[in-house]
Amino acid sequence: MAKSKLKLSGTKLKMVAGMVESGLVGPALRTKVMRQMGLDAIWDAHLDEEDAPALVLTRRADSSEEKGEEA
């Protein structure tokens, strides 16, 4: 079920936070996270150029309709 096993607390977690923010391991960590999530593979396999971004904001609630009244 769980693919990644990173578990940190205490001094190690603080140290990693500082390193990530300083840029020392930021790009590498991002690459690791992206690879673990398999984003490139997902984009390649599933995304069609005709897919429009889903805008839940307009899909579930059409704000062009008449403005509601406060209950």
Partner: peptide, 30 residues
């Protein structure tokens, strides 16, 4: 907090293209 710092930094480094592509796939999930 340190866990928040790590997650926010990683999220901040995501390209805008990835965010938009995620929203494209979100339509398929819906």
């Amino acid at each position: 907090g340190a866990d928040t710092r790590v997650l926010l930094q990683v999220a901040s480094s995501a390209p805008a293209v990835d965010y938009v592509r995620a929203q494209q796939l979100r339509g398929r999930i819906i």
